[in-house]
Design a binder for these strands. Structure first.
Length: 276
DNA sequence: GCCCAGGTATAAA
DNA sequence: TTTATACATGGG
């Protein structure tokens, strides 16, 4: 990987396993908007436009400092997904197929609160609507950056009532969002501690939040804490497991189970006719 | 109108 | 312990 910086943008050259469409549209995040051939998005309170051009990835509205401090980490450029993917591909032919089809997926290092809150919203919901709810949440309670808004902090949301959240139309999830925000703002849930916990303890801790069950907790750990062994199982993954791995535990995927899950999830979504 | 969505809480069996 | 149902809303 090489980096080239100019006035207002950074170019990433010779990067393996990075496809913007696959990464943004595989169901791990809900804030990246495709406008033309470019993706517009926000993370860590910064707004960028990113697109690919001749094997390069170009990030606009940034600089070398922001790239080094934020985006290199956010896009997980220090992790070798080729190595992980090839290792996972040996486990089962369907993972090999999924990896070969979607090897450009990277697990983004999202902010813990945004990941947790987004996946609380995701429950019993569809992706287009999740995106809309998250967007309304940011527009109403986040801070304006350039055109878009930051994800509102837990401290901000902790002061709201269920009624205040009515405009985002999150339905029964509003009370869950507020409970989560209050537990984070009060310190009852401590992200720094969760980072250091064993996975199962972290899950138990997160599920003390109302509306957070095993699926949401595992998603938060995978996407918000970059615990690559976390393995979210929803109704869809249950069916996928039944189809391809009857009588097998997710443990067979090892310490990169979450990555395997992401290849499998996206592949099986794109080829849903193969699933039961 | 109908079924369903990257689930969870709650009640009932 | 396992299984069934409600939940708010709107995409397809």
């Amino acid at each position: 990987m090489e980096i080239a910086c100019s006035k207002n943008c950074v170019t990433i050259k010779n990067i393996n396993n990075f496809d913007l469409g696959q990464t943004f549209d595989c169901g791990q995040c809900f804030r990246w908007q495709k406008i033309g051939d470019k993706y517009h998005g926000v993370a860590f309170g910064k707004e960028i436009i990113v697109f690919s051009e001749k094997n390069n990835i170009i990030i606009e509205n940034t600089n070398e400092k922001d790239f080094n401090n934020t985006w290199e980490n956010y896009f997980d450029l220090g992790t070798n997904y080729k190595c992980i993917g090839e290792e996972l591909a040996e486990i089962h032919p369907i993972i090999k197929k999924a990896y070969n089809s979607y090897s450009g997926i990277r697990i983004l290092k999202q902010e813990p609160w945004e990941a947790l809150c987004s996946f609380i919203i995701s429950q019993n919901n569809n992706i287009p609507r999740i995106q809309k709810i998250v967007s309304r949440l940011c527009n109403l309670f986040g801070n304006k950056i350039d055109i878009q808004f930051s994800f509102p902090s837990a401290q901000t949301l902790a002061q709201l009532t269920e009624n205040d959240l009515a405009p985002i139309k999150s339905g029964f999830r509003a009370k869950y969002i507020i409970d989560a925000a209050k537990k984070i703002a009060s310190g009852k849930i401590n992200f720094e501690k969760i980072k250091k916990m064993p996975l199962c303890d972290a899950e138990k801790h997160l599920t003390t939040i109302r509306g957070v069950g095993p699926k949401v907790a595992q998603c938060a750990l995978l996407y918000g804490f970059h615990k690559l062994e976390a393995f979210p199982i929803d109704v869809w993954m249950k069916r996928v497991m039944k189809t391809f791995f009857p009588d097998q535990n997710p443990e067979i995927f090892g310490k990169f189970a979450g990555v395997a899950q992401q290849y499998l999830y996206h592949y099986s979504r794109m080829h849903s006719e193969q699933i039961k």
